[in-house]
Amino acid sequence: MKTAHDLVATAKSRVQEIALADAEQAIRNADVLVDVREADEYAAGHLTGAAHMSRGMLEFKFSANPALESRDLKVVLYCKTSGRAALAAAALQDMGYLNVQSLAGGYDAWTAAGKPITKPETPSFE
């Protein structure tokens, strides 16, 4: 029986992971940057310009959005540490997307390197 780690390892063996050093350029070249973490994780902070599509809804959101139907789109995905993003990248490849990349180390590696993120602003009631 396979574990979640087995599935992630298999996905990582078939998808292209971007090293953190190359991530900013890959994101600039991408047509879409997708955060596949859960909504509360995204709301706590995310890479600037990232669209939120939780891992569980990714295939449905890509299928339902005409702006995402081109299989030539350049897609960069990330999650907390890279497991969910690898699974998401493999799923998009299975759907026929040709230019899918996953950020190695995910959000945690990005923030540990001091790279910019967007956080929601807390409303002021003064």
Rank of each mutant, 00 (worst) to 15 (best):
Glu121Cys: 09
Leu92Gln: 07
Thr122Gln: 13
Lys74Tyr: 09
Gly114Phe: 01
Leu33Phe: 03
Val34Gln: 02
Leu33Asn: 00
Arg14Ile: 14
Ala26Asp: 00
Ala43Lys: 14
Ile18His: 05
Glu59Gly: 03
Tyr78Ala: 06
Asp40Ile: 12
Ala4Lys: 12
Glu121Ala: 15
Ser124Val: 12
Arg37Phe: 00
Phe125Ile: 03
Ala90Met: 12
Ser82Cys: 11
Thr10Lys: 12
Glu126Leu: 00
Met57Trp: 11
Ala44Arg: 14
Ala112Ile: 04
Ala64Phe: 05
Ala104Arg: 14
Ala67Tyr: 01
Ala50Phe: 04
Ala4Ile: 13
Glu38Asp: 15
Glu69Tyr: 01
Leu87Gly: 04
Ile27Arg: 01
Leu20Cys: 08
Val76Gln: 05
Phe60Asp: 08
Arg55Pro: 00
Ala11Asn: 08
Thr10Ala: 15
Lys74Gly: 09
Ala67Ser: 10
Asp35Tyr: 01
Met1Glu: 12
Gln16Trp: 06
Glu17Phe: 01
Gly105Lys: 02
Met53Cys: 08
Ala64Arg: 10
Val32Ile: 15
Ala86His: 09
Asp40Leu: 11
Gly83Ile: 06
Val76Trp: 02
Asp72Gly: 02
Asn65Cys: 02
Gly49Pro: 08
Arg84Leu: 12
Asp94Met: 08
Lys2Cys: 04
Arg55Met: 14
Val76Ser: 00
Ser70Ile: 00
Leu33Gly: 04
Ala9Pro: 04
Ala43Ile: 03
Ser102Trp: 00
Thr122Gly: 07
Ala88Gln: 07
Ala91Arg: 12
Ala44Cys: 02
Pro120Thr: 14
Arg71Gly: 02
Ser54Tyr: 08
Asn65Trp: 04
Leu98Met: 11
Asn29Cys: 06
Ala4Pro: 07
Glu59Thr: 11
Arg71Ile: 00
Tyr78Met: 06
Leu33Met: 07
Thr81Met: 11
Glu41Met: 07
Glu17His: 10
Val32Thr: 09
Glu38Cys: 09
Ile117Tyr: 06
Gly56His: 07
Phe62Ala: 07
Val100Pro: 01
Met57Leu: 14
Gly96Leu: 03
Val100Ser: 01
Asp35Glu: 10
Asp31Cys: 01
Gly45Tyr: 06
Ala85Lys: 03
Leu33Thr: 03
His46Leu: 10
Ile27Ala: 02
Gln101Tyr: 01
Tyr42Gly: 06
Pro116Met: 11
Gly49Ile: 06
Ala4Asn: 13
Gly114Ala: 03
Leu103Ile: 11
Ala86Pro: 11
Ala4Ser: 12
Ala26Cys: 05
Thr10Leu: 12
Glu59His: 07
Ala26Ser: 11
Asp108Lys: 14
Thr10Cys: 03
